[in-house]
Nucleic acid binder design. Structure first.
Length: 585
RNA sequence: GCCCCCGUAGCUCAGUGGACAGAGCAGGAGCCUUCUAAGCUCUUGGUCGGAGGUUCGAAUCCUUCCGGGGGCGCCA
């Protein structure tokens, strides 16, 4: 059980004993660490209802809660705050118990609750670029946290493989290689097994055709028709599409693997194509026709803004991404998903509002199913505008990863670090340090804000960064290795005697609340912030308490136990952020 | 025009209705014969965009204005 919840229970009892609401007992970490470790503000909130001065109430609560085994100090401060500090022996016992718990006191959530996390969302034929980074990193961290907390998690990449860009690619392919059998309606197959285009071809074809259809309405019309024919099942187009899909899939799987991000499901828009027609059939009562298109009105009376209807089919009968999104919800219902989180750019919030409303209104999703958009801001360059390379192009994800790895390697050289390790290990360290810099830089930001991706700042490895955390973790590993070499064995954790030790223990005790908060707000930056706090608290302890030369054997064993616990927690936190720790650096 | 997000130290950002608003970077001063100095200690720096309001108490909730970004039916 978490330290805060057990303290809160004690105070809830005390309020109840004074004839007041249990909810007043909420204990939080103190805002004034110079005065106390924890605080309770219930007396202030209770004063009005009880018609008594808050300080009087606080005094009663203190009298009821007092326990010299637990509290070294309980006192009223200011207008009626209750300041709370623990005895060292109670704190030591609590931390010793944490060390035995794989969840470090965090609550175990219901494994029967199925949470689907939709993120990544790359498109066929488009190289992954920095724009996919935030969705991938935030989504990956969330799937790790939800899983850690005990939920059954399904992560779904939601491949963009069924929209207008597919028709565009088809007409571009025809322009470049008109003799391929895919375009011949009379061809009876079988179609070639070898893909007619490489990944490099596709990545060059897409921007070319995108520009052409934008400039030329006749070309756009051809692309639209090709899209429709693809969706309606024209065999040659389907076969060609499958090649595009395979080539893109292989490349993107490599990109995600490099990033350390994995998915349970590689579903895409096309996955649910066969569900669309029956779904639209079921929606007849709520859908209406408008200018040849099928729409569903999702405006509600309580709306303060204009919510336009969701377009279900285009006037030519083609499907839009709202259509496939709705069919995807239908599919997720069939998969018995209780909660679906969409980690997608904030600019799509209106779209998701429309889709979710349509799903509820049409009865595709029951009211009890949670459909939630988890939006994030854009990643900008140092100029405050969406990130571009120096040449003005979009930076590819694998180039970005190469960039941070090279920066990490350069830093190793410059600081003459890790010089005694072989080339392979140095490269591995640089890879991990670079990814840690990249991921921590992203995840430590509040989800909702736009943030500035500044390569210079990312590759500066001082301060509140991924590399600082790795360095701290590596030093911890090093102590434990040296201790093992000297046959020193970690023992049970006893009462702290010095302040950095005490503060480290208090910091470690915050873990359960941080996990809860991360889950509730779907925001990994809380984890990032806490990981930094723990490592900093450890570094202070490390400076003051020289573990390997400690003469008191019991104290030394306890310190080693504390070091071991810290490493376990930091490893867990970094893992939840998707960051790997090297053995040494 | 309507709606959403953001505005906090020179810069980049945290911040759960509570006490004196916090970090990192940058600036200044120190600490390596001992467990990795990518570290640690101290320090300078703020009318929380402005104005009203609710509250015992507001960076946080409400109203309004200003500034920045974004969205608003046949792209995704």
């Amino acid at each position: 059980m978490s330290l805060l919840s057990s303290l809160t229970d004690r105070f809830a009892d005390a309020y109840q004993a004074s004839g007041l609401e249990r909810a007043l007992g909420a204990v939080t970490v103190s805002d004034r660490p110079d005065l106390a470790q924890f605080q309770n503000n219930g007396a202030l909130a209770a004063a009005r209802g009880a018609g008594r001065p808050p300080r009087d109430i606080a005094a009663d609560v203190i009298a009821a809660a007092g326990d010299p085994e637990v509290f070294s100090d309980l006192s009223v401060a200011g207008p009626g705050f209750i300041n709370i500090s623990l005895t060292d022996s109670y704190l030591g016992r609590h931390v010793d118990r944490l060390a035995a718990d794989s969840r470090f006191g965090a609550v175990a959530h219901d494994p029967d609750r199925r949470v689907l996390i939709d993120f990544g969302g790359p498109n066929v034929a488009k190289a992954m670029h920095v724009g996919h980074l935030r969705s991938s990193l935030i989504g990956d961290s969330l799937q790790r946290v939800f899983r850690f907390a005990g939920y059954t998690v399904l992560s779904d990449i939601h491949f963009g493989d069924w929209g207008t860009q597919m028709g565009q690619l088809i007409i571009e392919a025809q322009l470049r290689k008109p003799d391929l059998p895919y375009f011949d309606p009379g061809f009876t197959g079988p179609y070639p097994e070898e893909p007619p285009f490489t990944l490099e071809d596709l990545q060059e074809m897409y921007p070319a055709v995108a520009a052409r259809t934008k400039a030329d309405p006749a070309e756009a019309e051809r692309a639209r028709e090709a899209t429709l024919e693809l969706q309606q099942g024209r065999p040659g187009y389907r076969a060609l599409w499958q090649h595009f899909w395979n080539v893109s899939h292989d490349s993107q799987q490599r990109d995600f693997a490099q990033l350390g991000v994995g998915f349970d499901l590689w579903h895409g828009e096309s996955t649910v194509h066969d569900r669309v027609a029956p779904m639209l059939e079921r929606m007849q009562d709520v859908a209406t026709e408008d200018a040849g298109a099928l729409i569903i009105d999702v405006a509600e009376e309580a709306d303060t803004k204009e919510v336009p209807p969701l377009l279900l089919t285009k006037s030519d009968g083609g499907y839009l991404y709202g259509t496939t999104d709705l069919a995807t919800i239908d599919n997720r219902v069939a998969m018995k998903v209780d909660e679906a989180l969409y980690v997608v750019d904030a600019r799509q919030s209106l779209h998701f509002e429309q889709v979710f409303r349509a799903a509820y209104k049409a009865g595709i999703a029951s009211q009890s199913m949670i459909l939630e958009h988890v939006p994030f801001g854009t990643m900008n360059g140092p100029d405050g505008k969406p990130f571009k390379t120096r040449e003005g192009g979009v930076l590819r994800l694998d180039d970005l990863i190469g960039l941070v790895r090279d920066a990490a390697l350069a830093r190793l050289d410059e600081a003459e670090l890790a010089t005694e390790y072989d080339e392979e290990e140095r490269r591995d360290i640089a890879e991990k340090v670079g990814l840690a810099a990249l991921k921590y830089g992203d995840l430590s930001n509040n989800r909702a804000s736009n943030y500035v991706f500044d390569l210079d700042r990312f590759t500066a490895f001082e301060g509140k960064t991924g590399p600082y955390l790795l360095y701290g973790a590596v030093r911890i590993k090093s102590i434990l290795r040296k201790a093992a070499d000297a046959d020193l064995v970690p023992g049970s954790i006893i009462a702290p005697t010095v302040d950095p030790e005490r503060r480290l223990m208090l910091e470690l005790s915050r873990f359960p609340e941080v996990i809860e908060r991360t889950i509730e707000s779907r925001a990994p930056n809380h984890l990032a912030e806490f990981a930094y706090d723990v490592v900093t608290a450890f570094n202070r302890f490390y400076e003051e308490c020289h573990i390997l030369s400690e003469r008191d054997a019991e104290r030394q064993a306890s310190w080693l136990g504390l070091v071991e616990l810290t490493l376990a927690m930091v490893s867990t936190l970094l893992d939840l952020l998707g960051i790997e720790i090297p053995e040494r650096m």
